[in-house]
Design a protein around this nucleic acid. Structure first.
Length: 414
RNA sequence: GCGGGUGUAGCUCAGUUGGUUAGAGCGCCAGUUUGUGGUACUGGAUGUCGUCGGUUCGAUUCCGAUCACUCGCCCCA
């Protein structure tokens, strides 16, 4: 094993207890919110057959063309570490025959993998929490799913750090019409477009709309708007979504240039963004994907969902709730007696810190460092009386209590 | 995948205009207090100066490559 192999693989990252506590808090807050909206957790494999992703995300998307962790397993099958959650959930929906139990509300969490160049808030193995609501064609689903996202961000204390942007990509008919109109317009300005946008024009013209290039933006300003190409049904759908958000007092701005990267989206597309994470402004994003499951070979089943980056959220949230403060058990002489007492307290449901070595002074210092609330001191004098010394480490006072009723005492105090 | 910046103790960072023993603060360890922590005081340990190679009598310092991190682009959570 070489020295370099002792480093974590580029773009991956260990979470030590303080970090993982924050991480877990974000996930648990998300799941708790999702449960209030009626979502249950689904756990799918972190790898799938490559086609699950390549067929669904769009052959031209960056995720598929250059970011997937794909390898052949020992039987020669092409396997891909999941780059996102929706395709796997859709696959599970089909292979599990879950069309019988619609509507279906699923929450998921876990690692995702994309071979990109790492940056702040952008890793090769990162974590997402996400939800999918399957089987509901009406805007009520869109509203509920976005409301859940807003609830989660509010619960994390991020309501004033994020902004909701929303747009409609229309139905298939609207999109085809708009794509044609837009392509025609942009083709007329090809010589003035940036190189990136000339590429986008061929692969996915909608993405020219959110180009950051100065020159592109001037051209885009005068481009025909998606809104003008919408069918009346698509327009009405979007109006109902925005009306619902207003009714629920969820602040949003309509951004007609908002486009999603993955091909399966239609109708509602939305993003919660922040200005506090540098170039990685998107913290939670999602949209509607009515044709995805049919495209994969399942029964046509409308769906809408979102995913949020746990690392990105973790960088924005404040301190997670502190862990329960332990009781420190400190033996003066007989360490095995201390183990018995510690075990008793642990069985009673208390968090107990029992040191491994050192004199009393060191053990007290250790108790202090782990933020213990009380110290149980097992001294020889007290032991002779069947008692222990219970010290309040915040107040600095201590009392002798009978060993037999130690749990009761501690239970009353905490 | 493309372009810029950075890389010195566990952490945050100074420093060496190339020269013998590389520093601070925090943290860590020990002591002042051999049955009592948090404060204070005293003392101590720590580094192949990211890695490999080049120039040089001599490189942590200059040059190159490489790796990692970081900022931006692409893209995205």
């Amino acid at each position: 094993m070489s020295v370099s192999s002792l480093q974590p693989v580029r773009g991956t990252h260990d979470l030590m207890p303080d970090d993982s506590r924050r991480h877990r808090w974000v996930e648990d807050t998300a799941f708790a919110a999702a449960r209030r909206y009626g979502f249950g957790e689904i756990v799918t494999p972190i790898f799938e057959f490559t086609e699950v992703f390549s067929r669904t995300l769009g052959e031209t998307s960056d995720v598929v063309t250059k970011e997937m962790y794909t390898f052949a397993d020992r039987s020669g099958d092409s396997i891909t570490l999941r780059p996102e959650g929706t395709a796997g959930v859709a696959r599970a929906f089909i292979s599990g025959g879950m069309a019988q139990s619609l509507p279906l509300k699923l929450f998921y969490r876990g690692p995702m993998f994309r071979h990109e160049r790492p940056q702040k808030g952008r890793l090769r193995q990162f974590h997402q929490v996400g939800v999918e609501l399957l089987g509901v064609e009406t805007p009520q689903a869109d509203i509920e799913v976005i409301a859940l996202a807003w609830r989660l961000l509010s619960d994390l204390g991020l309501a004033d750090k994020v902004q909701l942007e929303i747009n409609t990509l229309g139905d298939a008919e609207s999109r085809a019409a708009y794509r044609q109109t837009l392509t025609a317009y942009l083709s007329g300005h090809v010589d003035k477009l940036s190189e990136d946008s000339r590429n986008r024009l061929e692969r996915n013209p909608l993405r020219v709309l959110d180009s950051k290039d100065e020159g592109d933006r001037r051209i885009v300003e005068n481009a025909p708007a998606m809104g003008d190409s919408l069918t009346s049904a698509a327009r009405e759908f979007f109006e109902q979504v925005t009306a619902g958000l207003t009714a629920l007092e969820i602040p949003f701005v309509v951004n007609p240039r908002l486009v999603r990267g993955l091909d399966y989206y239609c109708h509602t597309a939305f993003e919660f963004t922040t200005t506090q994470l540098g170039a990685q402004g998107t913290v939670l994003a999602g949209g509607r994907y009515d044709e995805l499951i049919a495209t994969m070979g399942g029964p046509r089943t409308p769906g809408i969902g979102w995913a949020a980056g746990v690392e990105r959220l973790s960088m924005l949230v404040g301190e997670p709730p502190p862990p329960a403060r332990p009781i420190a058990v400190i033996p003066m002489g007989d360490a095995s007696a201390a183990m018995v007492v510690a075990e008793r307290l642990r069985r009673a449901g208390l968090a107990v810190e029992l040191g491994y070595s050192g004199n009393m002074k060191k053990r007290m210092a250790r108790a202090n460092k782990v933020n213990a609330r009380f110290a149980v001191i097992l001294g020889e004098d007290e032991a002779a009386r069947g008692a222990v010394t219970l010290r309040d480490l915040d107040g600095g006072t201590q009392d002798e209590v009978p060993l037999a009723s130690l749990e009761d005492h501690l239970g009353r105090l905490s």
